[in-house]
């Protein structure tokens, strides 16, 4: 009995020493992990806005970090998920620095398919989930919510009432002002604006193409004139506006004019 008790006593002492050693080294290692972030970069690639967040993970602890998984879900104001981005690093060895580029991509074409994001500024919520296994024995998870502003590329888009001016019996000109503010920090509108004017009988009166160049955070205002056939002019009608730019194609946007009486 005495030998059994002695053996148990020593087993307990050794296990307590191991346990305390493990706790101290784990706490020490966690306290020696540093995360540094550099400046976030925004760029566009293949019609996608990419927000690249660089992390530098400095593991000065005693244990390695495994299966680091960073997932970001961009959610609209209406709680609708817009995109999901994941970055994965399988091992961050001890005493090493590891650079992680976490890219969040938003498809511009998908965004503009919802007209609200073209004309209205908004705030998206970023649901960031970070998961990792520390020292192979401690799974760790962290979730952080942050916001990302969305600037509408066609904010306050306005088309003035057209004014008709007769040049001769067959030809007239129709003029109107187009203005908007490109609030988007990511999208530069460079391309062509196609305008088609129809009368109330849905007959095409005239077409014009306008080259536009509206960089982010700038204002656009221009008076456009289109030659039309005088005989087809009616009291009312509509203008079809189509944007064909390098980053987004959108349209036709139907703007009615005149009164039907």
């Amino acid at each position: 009995m005495k030998y059994t008790l002695k053996a148990l006593k020593w087993a307990i002492i050794i296990l307590w020493i191991c346990f305390i050693f493990l706790i101290f080294t784990t706490v020490y290692s966690v306290a020696n992990i540093r995360v540094e972030t550099n400046e976030t970069k925004f760029f566009t690639k293949n019609n996608e806005v990419i927000v690249a967040i660089p992390f530098i993970l400095i593991n000065d602890g005693l244990y390695e970090i495994l299966n680091l998984n960073v997932t970001t879900i961009v959610v609209s104001r209406e709680n609708e998920p817009l995109t999901k981005s994941t970055s994965f690093i399988d091992v961050i060895p001890r005493g090493k620095e590891t650079m992680i580029w976490h890219n969040i991509s938003l498809s511009i074409q998908k965004m503009v398919s919802n007209q609200k994001y073209l004309f209205e500024d908004s705030n998206f919520t970023l649901l960031n989930n970070i998961r990792l296994d520390f020292a192979r024995i401690i799974p760790f998870a962290m979730s952080v919510n942050s916001t990302m502003p969305w600037g509408a590329p066609l904010y306050n888009f306005t088309v003035s009432e057209p004014t008709f001016q007769m040049i001769n019996a067959t030809t007239s000109t129709v003029s109107f002002n187009i203005s908007f503010e490109n609030h988007s920090p990511y999208i530069n509108l460079e391309g062509e604006l196609e305008l088609k004017i129809f009368n109330e009988n849905e007959e095409l009166l005239g077409v014009t193409y306008e080259t536009i160049r509206v960089p982010s955070n700038s204002f656009y205002k221009k008076t456009l004139s289109v030659y039309i056939e005088t005989t087809k002019v009616t009291n009312s009608g509509y203008i079809n506006i189509t944007f064909k730019t390098s980053m987004l194609n959108f349209g036709p946007l139907v703007i009615p004019y005149g009164s039907e009486e």
Binding site: I12, L15, F19, I138, F140, M142
Partner: peptide
């Protein structure tokens, strides 16, 4: 605030239970 943390310390709990079980046996 807006940060949620979750750490799984099952390994430590199991080790603690094991040591305590040995203590009970002793």
């Amino acid at each position: 605030e807006n940060i949620k943390l979750a750490v799984n310390l099952q390994f430590f709990i199991l080790m603690l239970i094991f040591i305590s079980m040995l203590g009970i046996a002793k």
